[in-house]
Design a protein around this nucleic acid. Sequence first.
RNA 1: GCCCCUGUAGCUCAGUGGAUAGAGCACCGGUUUCCUAAACCGGGUGCCGCAAGUUCAAUUCUUGCCAGGGGCACCA
Length: 543
Amino acid sequence: MIKTAIAESLKKAIEEIFKLSDTEPSVVESPNKQFGDYSTQVAFQLAKILKNDPKKIASDIKNALEYNSNFERIEVVGGYINFFLKNEFYHKEIEKVYSEGEEFAKLKHVSEEKILVEYVSSNPTGPMVIVNGRAAALGDSFIRILNWRGYNAIGEFYINDGGNQVYLLGLSCNEMYKKLMGMPYEIPENGYHGSYIEDFVKLMMEKSDLSGMDDKSRSNYLGEEGVRYFHAMQIKSLKDFGVIFDSEIHEKRIREEGLTEYVIKTLRDKNLIYEKDGAIFFKSTDFGDDKDRAIIKSDGKYTYLLPDAAYHEDKMRRAFDYLIDIFGPDHHGYIKRLKAIFKALGHDPDKLEILIHQIVNLVNEGEKIKMSKRKGNIITLDDLIDDVGKDAARFFFVMRKKNSHLDFDLKLAKEKSENNPVFYVQYAHARISSIMDFAYSKGIKLNEYIDFSLLNEEKEIELIKSILLLPDILDDAIRMREPAVLPKYLIDLSSSFHSFYNKHRVITDDTELSMARLALVQCVKNTIKIGLNLIGVDAPNKM
RNA sequence: GCCCCUGUAGCUCAGUGGAUAGAGCACCGGUUUCCUAAACCGGGUGCCGCAAGUUCAAUUCUUGCCAGGGGCACCA
């Protein structure tokens, strides 16, 4: 917010002196204290346009700016303009933050746009695995941040309960049933092999009499029931992970409502499909794809793309203005064809944004754990939560940028308590709670007049600066679609706090100063709590 | 063969056109009669994978190459 204010006044000054209206001056935090609090290199950019010495331009701008009472002074070094802010500026700002309390940095209605974020959407054929946890943490945090900053976003889970995998799940379960009954069996190669299949079938054998059914009806039955069972299991895991979806959409419903037929008809009317070898192909190459994609197989069954296209049609019919899909790395090749068919259906492809996150490797004792869903040796999200806790898991998943290949070291995470950043941040919060309790026991309360101008120590100003960054950080997270900036910020903020704490006492004999400092750490506490909540991590008062 | 991601300190990673490239961990030393020592303070490391190009300015953008990971269906 400070940056944009400075940028605004720069823009004004530039307009005045040089009659240039379309410059967007970038203001950055100074890399070094000797260069002030903020600085801009706009003079370098203007040098080219104005064909003049950046030094001269910088000092001209400086002269036009000096009326601003927020600045202690403005210095020109080379072509850089460095801003030194008065402490009074920070006092005013922290007072505002203080009055906002736990609503700090929260905005109302910056946009009327309805945003739909689809994420996780794992097949209901087994438990949640680790990589789903990454998608869940990423999507949920992103939605929370969007809404905190005044956007209108909801999260949705798409349940693939209408396609081939339901059939395969049924087959696999039926073969498992036969195995458990001591009959000859053969689990299909591309079927599901995990021990969770056995658990499920055993449960079903207790619940109902499967022996009276023939293979086909038993297979169908187990497939249908299995999808329900595993979906419920997944939703439960996500809930334990702090992720709750605003909406769930069933592929089955999409099919039943005739949306798939609508897609076929629309594409046929536009002459965008053709038959080849008994299958129906969509001309995705017309939209930049590498090759045309089958939407109906020669056996008459739909490929994944067709109902998914219908699902996206459904999203648009529900009057969303902007769609974001968060997919795993194995779906990157799918982006082109999905966007292609989305466009073919008459929608603006710029309204559909697809984000890809990278894989998660589990590492233990320095060795990667090889997992194979097919072979059934998987580690589930539940296992991870049991192992390292929800808070650590969520913090870690979000801490890395989505494009990084995340190595999740289980052993380290388990024994982590001493070097785990999530504890570092939570500890700062708990520590402040403790200070509040102490202050209360000394009869100091916060609801009286606070004189923030008493805060002039270097550590105090640094702490205020750090607090004031939150709105910018959240907007960065949104702009870059990268919640990762938030945990990083919280670590920095906590570090500033711990450093302040070790140098200065909050509660002293000086009541006025004690109150000002108490109010300051209250702001830190609120900021940490807000930040942690936005990534789904608890902010404990005691540790 | 084609496509995607990554390559920065011993390790894990920030840094999405600007000043001397930064944190944490690990390692060594110091700090507690005092609000939580899960903390703080001090100590040092870099052909920013390589090579060209664009630019006043490149770790950042472009291209090529090298290395690691992932993906290339009438699977989902």
